[in-house]
Nucleic acid binder design. Structure first.
Lengths: 182, 182
DNA sequence: TCTGATATATGTCGTAACGATATATATCAT
DNA sequence: ATGATATATATCGTTACGACATATATCAGA
């Protein structure tokens, strides 16, 4: 699934400007499973318009710069629905934290403590974000995916809280062994 | 964290060829939180060798093509440990499934059933993979991250099994509404 | 008052990384 | 002997990111 389909999905739920698409994808409903950069959004919107999958109108705003609002067309919606029937690819998941945790023995307790405490805080913020989104929107499928997120991220947070200290205890152990061997 | 650091991390746990690094990162211990493509691995190994972060030796094998085995140097290990102290970035998580689930109303029950059943099967395979890795390696930090993975992916699987039918029930609802409105 | 911070808004550009493909050797089952 | 599979290295076009440039408007505080 490419940027094109992602943007069509967002526009299918309502008109938006490039800036709003970015916000939706990094702070809104989509933010816990998608993120699109400006470097992808603006060129893709131009391509989408050229292919008549979206239309564009300029809106003047009071106190803010003009915005270009994009709407999905029937052709665009058909394209999106057709893309939905392609079996979704595996989730892409990359975690620098897990790599650092796996190398806990090589670094200091301070580094590990900061890393896991940052992670706990970020995870708490994510759970709060999803809770907020959930109460804002009663669309059934959105309720389903936010319940899913809350369930999984809640379990994640539980593990982090219960096992924080045991990870910190591993910090520096490899170093000590190396030095002892010298 | 870039490909360079990722590869240094893998080589820090033991010598490997480019092919083995790929396997480790998409089938081995690292596979549940990292994936590196050949298009990144081979050019990065060449760069790493030029910078003296790794050394390379050729090994002839019986019944298999020769392989180029890379080893991390002291300079490379220092570089890696230094990279560890940089606070890890947020996890990157992209899920096509969640986008499809969120659009369940636009598509057919068949499409949704296939998507969720595929996901359940894949998640079961992932849990089995992590279980296997866990029993193979008694390194404490590896035990920690595999426990973490098992805990989170177990919760994930629970939710999918318990809420499979309610998602399928949402399929096609938007279409019906559209048609009723016509 | 003007200065800096913040938010809105669009866009570009270098480069990192992916994904597919090419190439080659060896094994093994049909 | 033919095709499939596994091992192994490498390149290349394309995608997408991340940082930057540009511009307008609001508002708090020096």
């Amino acid at each position: 699934m490419n940027t094109q389909t992602l943007i069509l999905a967002i526009l299918n739920f309502g008109d938006a400007s490039g800036y709003e698409i970015k916000k939706e994808s990094s702070e809104g409903v989509y933010s816990y499973f998608v993120d699109i950069s400006y470097g992808s959004i603006y060129p893709t919107l131009a391509k989408l318009e050229a292919e008549e999958f979206v239309t564009c109108r300029s809106e003047t705003q009071s106190g803010k710069p003009d915005k270009k609002v994009y709407s999905i067309t029937d052709k665009g919606r058909a394209e999106f629905i057709s893309a939905l029937s392609i079996p979704p690819a595996h989730d892409k998941f990359k975690s620098e934290f897990l790599l650092v945790a796996m190398s806990a023995g090589l670094t200091s307790p301070e580094v590990i403590t900061r890393a896991i405490d940052n992670r706990i805080r970020e995870m708490e913020e994510l759970v709060e974000l999803i809770s907020g989104l959930r109460s804002e929107c009663d669309h059934p499928a959105t309720q389903w995916i936010t319940s899913y997120g809350l369930h999984v991220k809640g379990a994640d947070l539980d593990f982090l809280r219960n096992n924080r200290d045991s990870l910190i205890a591993m910090a520096g152990l490899n170093k000590t062994l190396d030095q002892a061997a010298e």
